[in-house]
Write a protein that binds this DNA or RNA. Structure first.
Lengths: 244, 244
DNA sequence: CGGCACGTTGATAGGGATCAACGAAGGTGG
DNA sequence: CCACCTTCGTTGATCCCTATCAACGTGCCG
């Protein structure tokens, strides 16, 4: 992967301090005097086009990536016979944590739409962490959060109906968008039905059908890929109790 | 949880250097001169009885635990309506990584049999990591490995048949036992059918039936909870291609 | 305009959940 | 030492959820 690196002396919105996502990303807990050093190791590659790969499975691991805008999907090639969507990454979320400690990336990461990322070369990050205790803590916390996210995903997948999974998925997205300062009720689904299906262990047709059911029940409204959650309570009941 | 702490001056097998699992656990990559400092922060509580809790969901997070012998299951209480088995921990594996960055433990951990653990108070560990670069690296790598394990679990759960899941589960255990120096073919299943079912998103009856099928096909042999894998190749084919 | 990716909807079949009964093993108390 | 109970595993019968195959509509892009 060849990336066009931009100069260090970009405009303010290209620095963490002026970034709208500062406060949600890895740099959150860094004190101001450390932020500068953190900023200095960040690369900001050119934006990814829809469908373009950020990293490819098997390729050497070098960097973490934080989504600045747009979104990503992480896909594992399972024995060369099909693709499994493991994660979606929304703005402020960090991709690549699962590759730490491995020489090679365990999965491919693709852009779901036009996507800007910040690149954090891991070697630099680690060196910096030697000096900055708060950065170390931030990294641990970030990985811990990722682990809890995976646990949640396992619970979603394990022995739940299609309705429970989809409701849980929508509520999870809602929470994540809300945490980064967006609406809890209305957001853009950049991923296809097939992507959602793979991620939830469902056939894409089932995703479509259940989505339709939710709309008819007045739980959600959809315009294209723009979703509006009309009843968080209703969805929560379904996610917990199961359909009906 | 009150634990009986043992003195610092125990026999050699209670130190990392003399431990049979050194080389598999967190302490693996520490140079000898750092090992001593690492050893100094470890507690070794009294062994857990079968069914006893090591930590309980919601309880303040204080420590990581490394399994020395025996095994653990990590269980999440889902909305108070049922329990979801998220992880099993075998000797040399580290429990508690998913709680890092949280004040409270996200799940309950129970002993599946008589189990000895090493307790690593996280505050001490973090302080020590300030001095020891290799310990920092070891922690990152450990968490990265955990993340990849969870990914694997998600792939196992997502849209696979009962046979594929169980075959994948057995092969995963085989690998983990082998990595710690035990037989790849023969090991003890400390968990019940219900535990396995919950972990794999299957009803316990299904686990029992598929196990029976595997036995009739000569893929595995069982004597009580002692399992022998008779054909890793056969199981691999099933895990990958699906039944038949 | 034609091709393609994507989403929707219908019909069908099958895998696994569920309910139920039963046997084996281990712990307990008399 | 044996009767009792509880936990665990096995096996059978039934039903339902969802995968699968299929057809069709839509919007987008070359």
């Amino acid at each position: 992967m060849t990336t066009v690196r931009q100069g260090r002396s970009g405009p303010a919105e290209l620095l963490c301090e002026g970034c709208s996502l500062h406060g949600a990303c890895l740099s959150r807990s860094l004190p101001l005097e450390e932020l500068e050093a953190f900023d200095a190791i960040i690369d900001r590659p050119r934006p990814l086009k829809r469908g373009e790969a950020l990293v490819r499975q098997g390729q050497p691991f070098t960097s973490l990536f934080v989504v600045r805008s747009g979104s990503l999907k992480q896909v594992i090639d399972v024995d060369g016979r099909y693709d499994q969507v493991v994660h979606f990454y929304l703005p402020s979320e960090t991709e690549g944590l699962d590759a730490i400690g491995e020489a090679r990336c365990p999965a491919t990461v693709l852009a779901l739409e036009r996507t800007f990322v910040c690149e954090l070369p891991f070697a630099h990050l680690e060196r910096l962490a030697t000096r900055l205790p708060s950065l170390r803590g931030a990294l641990y916390r970030c990985m811990g959060r990722e682990l809890r996210g995976d646990q949640r995903q396992v619970c979603l997948l394990s022995g739940r109906t299609a309705e429970q999974r989809l409701a849980g998925f929508l509520l999870g997205l809602s929470e994540r968008f809300h945490a980064r300062g967006c609406s809890r009720y209305r957001f853009h689904l950049a991923m296809s039905r097939a992507d959602i299906g793979s991620h939830l262990g469902l056939a894409l047709e089932t995703v479509s059908r259940v989505m339709g059911r939710f709309q008819r029940q007045g739980l959600v409204a959809m315009a294209g890929r723009e979703v509006t959650l009309r009843s968080l309570e209703g969805l929560t009941v379904i996610a917990e109790d199961g359909p009906r």
